[in-house]
Structures are given as structure tokens and as C-alpha cells.
Nucleic acid binder design. Structure first.
Lengths: 233, 233
DNA sequence: CGTAAAATTGATTGGGATCAATGCGTGTGG
DNA sequence: CCACACGCATTGATCCCAATCAATTTTACG
């Protein structure tokens, strides 16, 4: 894992990423602490559960999934991450990573090593506040996920998953209501607490009901409001 | 909501609470920003969703639940909070509270108003790092909850709920494997994504299987390892 | 191509929801 | 102090949604 010279001001994602909330001069300082990592390929681990915590990552392009294993070795996917999103915030308080993070396709990432954190937060007090806000909104997001999965039917869960994905990809990767699922049906099922067969059947049903159009991994949202209505029933 | 003079160093919860991680001198500074709130009674709101965000709370004694409402007005309980635990971290990044927080019994709380936050984090840089750690471990906890609820049976969910509650109450409220459920069966069901009937049936089953002893709201954990084994199947 | 993983589709089963009735406990007013 | 009421909890009977089991089909990739 080598370091590459990096200028946030020229990065296409600078408004989405951490520096997007900093002043121009602070960005200059900030980017000295950032490392552009080498490309991760499909299946590569960013880090594994229990590995020494060395910093957080920002997705520049590609998709990452993070999962935990329970005591009996069963996998539970915690989240999927896309361009502009920050990975590893749940491990800051520990000296080891709390999940395993895997690239689902070809991924470019920036890493903020946390050895520099104390120095950084003295130089740029706003960075601490920035991270605080970021983590706070991630906490709120996990509650929203809980709200939308815990007492819902399979169809509602799937509809919510697609809405959520669409909303997270918009203004980041694509602006159209059309995107590619980087994850398998098995991954979707695992995340939502459904079997692969149920995922398959209800994706199909959403298509029959003219809410989406799906061809393999290519999804097009036909009727976003229809999907939202489904979830809100 | 009036302020009361407060000395963290004399508080019985000072090792559990935020100041527990600060040096003695920092605590002196820190407690000037803290307010001991008046007592909240059963059913009282600490704050409501959408209300202006004014700060975070620490539970000194009692139990608080936080919930969200979905678009159709259905409630989803996000978490229960006990002595030493911090409430409202999911609202820091916003100017309004993201959940509604309600006292389940008589509650004493301390409030850290966030108007003072910037001043505070300049005087005590460790406070920012402390909050960062706190939020990070809360993020990790929500993942653990997801892991233990998403693909589990009703019995496993309930077993996990009791284990989790026991672990959070230990070294805080009580050291025995015995405690009182401040929440109703309806609340438990809502949190776990089960109906009240299912909660009732499986609490009963856990008792029949000699894993717990339950009389109304009084719970005694008889076989903690047995409960853990159930969850880990 | 050829093989394996991923996904679809159908038949059947089962766990927890729903419907329904009763029991318990606590607070209120006569 | 008791009677009543209302919310909360328990218990039983039935139903239904999604899991499971099983058999292909499709896709990805060396």
C-alpha cells in the first residue's frame, strides 16, 4: 500500500468528500494527511475484522461492502458504500477494525490514517467537528434503516433498499434513476434479512407492477413515488 | 428547565459518564458546561422529533426510550438508555432532534448544551476525541444489534435482548443478574420487530427452559450461557 | 466452450402474525 | 375501601408470508 500525491482541489468528488466542508486553505493542509490508495479489485479486502485499526477510507469510485460474522460464523452485511462515502467510522474508538470491508468491483479510495489524527485536529479544529457531524448522521441513518426494515414485509424491504440506493447514488455516481447493482442477490438478501429466493421473487414482482425495470444487475427506477408509497403503507 | 449546581467529582456515575475519561482538572472545566436537569417523570418527553437541537443528555438514573415515526405514523423504537448512557448523539449534525425521547420511569439526567461545544472543545480538546470515540462505539453497537436481530428467530431476538440489557445494566445500575424491565412488552416487541403475543409466548418459553425467571417486570437471568448459546445457533 | 456460481421458478412447510377471549394490575372516583 | 375501568399481558385457534426444499436456467469467467 503506497502513497500517491493527491490534490483534493482537483478531485471530482471534493464537494462530496470530507474536504468539501473545509475552507480552501484547510483543504491544502488536510490533503497532506490523505493517501490515495492503489486500486482495489473485486474481492480484495480493505481490512478484516480484528486487524489493527490504521485509519478511515473514503470511496472515490466503486462499491464496498462491510460485514460482521456472528459467533457461529454466519455473515451479516452491515452496509454498502459508494463514491463519496466514508468507511471505518465504527472502528475509531478501538485499536482494531470492527468489520471486514471488501471491494465489490474495482475501487479507488482515499485513506485518512489516524496516526495523524491528533496533529490534524489541532491544525484544523474543523476536522474534528466534521467527523462528529459525519458520525452523527451515520448514527441517524442506521436508525432510519432500522425504521424501514424492522417491521416491514419482504416487498417493502426491497422497495426501501432500491429507494435508499437510488438516493445515495444520485448526485454522486449518476443522476439518472438508473444504476448497476454491484452486489449479488445473496448480498441483498443478507442485508435485508431475506432469502435469495424471496429477493428474486419480489424484484420480479416490482417489475411486473411497473415500479422498476431490471435486467440482471441493471436497475431502472420507473416509479419512485410508487416505491415510496409501498414502503409507507 | 432550570440549572442546578453540579460537581461531577461527587457524582456516583462519574466513572461511567463523560468525565470518567478526563483528567481531574479537565473535569472541573467540563462540569461548568453541564446542567443537572429537573427530574423527568414517566411519560415526560426529553425532546421531540423536529424540536430545536439544544444538546445531548446523560442518564444519571432511570430509563429513557427513543423512537422515530415513519411516514404512515407507525412508531419504531430505536433504543433504550440507562444510567451512564448518552442520548441525542444522532442529532448533533442537525439543528433539530432526529428522534423523540421519553422517560420510562423517574429519570435524573445531565445535559451538555451544544451551544458551548466549540468553546468547550477548544478548552478541552479531549472532549472532542471523547465524543468521537463515544459515537464510534455507538455506531459499532448498532451494527451488532443488526447482526443479532436481522436473521434471527423470535426466541433468539428475545434472548439477545435480555443478554444485551443485562450487559448494559451490569456495573451500572445493578451487579446482580436481576433487574426490572422499565419498558412494556409492547415496547420490547416494537424494538425487536415482534408482536406482543410473540414476546409473551417466548418469554414464557425461556422461563420454562430454565434460562430466566420472570415475574411481571422483574427478570432474573438464570443461565446466561444458555441464552448466549441460543443466540449463537 | 465448459464449469461453477448466481439466479429463477415451482411446490411445500413452518414460524410468527392475526384474530379472539380471558386474566391481571393499577389508578380513579363513588 | 371497594368497584369499576382501562391498559397491559397471557393464552388459544387459525391463517398467511416468507423459508425451505428442489429442479432448472442463466450468467460469469477461466
Amino acid at each position: 500500500m503506497t502513497t500517491a500525491t493527491l490534490t483534493c482541489n482537483h478531485c471530482q468528488f471534493n464537494t462530496l468528500c470530507l474536504p468539501g466542508h473545509l475552507g480552501h486553505n484547510d483543504v491544502e493542509l488536510f490533503q497532506r494527511h490523505l493517501q490515495r490508495t492503489p486500486v482495489f479489485h473485486k474481492g480484495d479486502n480493505l481490512y478484516k475484522t480484528g486487524e489493527l485499526f490504521s485509519g478511515i477510507y473514503v470511496v472515490v469510485s466503486g462499491t464496498v461492502k462491510a460485514f460482521k460474522l456472528d459467533a457461529s460464523g454466519q455473515k451479516q452485511i452491515i452496509d454498502f458504500y459508494h463514491a463519496g462515502e466514508v468507511i471505518g467510522l465504527d472502528s475509531i474508538s478501538s485499536d482494531t477494525y470492527k468489520t471486514t470491508a471488501v471491494a465489490l468491483d474495482t475501487c479507488v479510495l482515499c485513506k485518512l490514517p489516524f496516526a495523524h489524527f491528533d496533529e490534524l485536529s489541532i491544525n484544523i479544529p474543523e476536522v474534528a467537528r466534521l467527523l462528529l457531524n459525519l458520525m452523527s448522521s451515520q448514527l441517524n441513518n442506521t436508525s432510519i434503516v432500522h425504521l424501514n426494515l424492522n417491521q416491514k414485509t419482504a416487498q417493502q424491504k426491497l422497495a426501501y433498499f432500491l429507494i435508499e440506493l437510488d438516493s445515495r447514488l444520485k448526485n454522486r455516481v449518476t443522476s439518472a434513476n438508473s444504476f448497476i447493482l454491484a452486489m449479488t442477490r445473496t448480498d441483498i438478501g443478507n442485508y435485508l434479512g431475506l432469502t435469495i429466493e424471496t429477493v428474486s421473487r419480489f424484484i420480479n414482482k416490482l417489475q411486473k407492477d411497473n415500479l422498476i425495470k431490471i435486467t440482471g444487475k441493471q436497475v431502472e427506477i420507473i416509479d419512485l413515488n410508487g416505491l415510496k408509497q409501498l414502503v409507507e403503507q
